[in-house]
Amino acid sequence: MKYFILLFVIICFAGCSKSTGVMSIGKDNYMISTDVSTEFYAPSDAVKKSIEEATLYCNSLDKDIFVENIQNTNNDNNISSNCTLIFQCVDKK
């Protein structure tokens, strides 16, 4: 139930952010890319939103997230920030 509440909160605040959603990029490897408007969010919020969505995805599989790579970039005018996150969902210990 708590995951549904968290998902609802994320959706409510998603108006100024865009996400590709979780995409499979190979066996047990996933990627998500998130853009946020720096008018409403700090540039680091792109990373936070990507990790939150990836964690929800892994939790839905009853697994934990393992982050392989994070790239966070700002556009030239500092109007938006983008995060590309590559991760795996691994068995819980």
Rank of each mutant, 00 (worst) to 15 (best):
Ile25Asp: 04
Thr84Gln: 07
Phe40Ile: 13
Cys83Trp: 05
Val67Asp: 04
Phe13Ile: 11
Asp76Leu: 14
Gln71Glu: 07
Cys83Leu: 05
Glu52Thr: 09
Lys2Arg: 05
Ser44Arg: 12
Thr84Phe: 07
Ile32Cys: 03
Met23Phe: 10
Cys58Leu: 02
Lys18Val: 04
Val67Ala: 06
Val22Gly: 11
Cys12Trp: 02
Cys58Phe: 02
Asn72His: 12
Phe13Val: 12
Ile86Thr: 11
Asp62Trp: 03
Ile79Leu: 05
Leu56Ile: 11
Leu7Trp: 02
Phe40Glu: 14
Ala46Pro: 00
Thr20Ile: 06
Ala46Lys: 04
Gly26Met: 03
Phe40Met: 12
Cys89Gly: 06
Asn74Leu: 15
Tyr41Val: 05
Ile11Thr: 06
Phe66Gln: 09
Ile65Gly: 11
Ser44Val: 14
Asn72Pro: 00
Phe40Gly: 06
Ile32Val: 08
Ser17Glu: 14
Ala42Cys: 02
Ala46Leu: 05
Lys27Glu: 08
Ser44Tyr: 10
Thr20Asn: 13
Val67Met: 08
Ile86His: 03
Phe8Ala: 14
Ile65Asn: 08
Ser24Asp: 03
Ser17Gly: 15
Asn75Lys: 07
Asn69Glu: 13
Ile79Thr: 14
Pro43Ala: 14
Met23Glu: 12
Ile86Gly: 05
Cys58Asp: 02
Ser19Asn: 08
Val67Gly: 07
Met31Ala: 12
Val47Pro: 00
Asn29Phe: 00
Asp28Leu: 06
Cys12Lys: 13
Asn74Cys: 10
Cys89Pro: 03
Tyr41His: 12
Thr20Pro: 04
Met31Asn: 13
Val90Pro: 01
Lys92Asp: 01
Ile70Arg: 04
Lys48Gly: 09
Gln88Cys: 01
Lys2Phe: 01
Cys58Ser: 02
Glu68Arg: 11
Lys92Ser: 13
Tyr57Trp: 04
Ile51Ser: 07
Lys93Tyr: 00
Met31Lys: 15
Ile10Trp: 00
Val9Gly: 01
Lys92Asn: 09
Val90His: 00
Tyr57His: 15
Phe13Leu: 09
Tyr30Arg: 06
Ser50Glu: 00
Val36Thr: 04
Ile5Tyr: 03
Ser17Lys: 15
Ser81His: 12
Ile10Asp: 00
Asn78Ala: 08
Phe40Thr: 15
Lys27Thr: 09
Asn75Arg: 10
Cys58Tyr: 00
Cys89Thr: 10
Phe66Pro: 02
Tyr57Arg: 11
Asp62Ala: 10
Ile70Val: 12
Ser60Thr: 05
Val47Arg: 10
Ser33Phe: 03
Thr34Glu: 03
Ser17Cys: 15
Ile25Cys: 06
Val36Asn: 02
Ser19Ala: 10
Tyr30Ile: 07
Lys63His: 05
Leu61Asp: 02
Lys27Phe: 01
Ala46Cys: 06
Met23His: 06
Thr84Ile: 13
Gly26Lys: 07
Ser60Asn: 08
Ala54Pro: 09
Pro43Met: 09
Val67Ile: 15
Met31Leu: 15
Asp64Pro: 01
Asn59Ser: 09
Asn78Thr: 04
Phe4Lys: 10
Asp35Val: 09
Gly26Leu: 07
Phe13Ala: 10
Ala46Met: 03
Met31Gly: 09
Phe66Ala: 08
Glu68Gln: 14
Leu56Gly: 11
Met1Val: 02
Lys92Val: 14
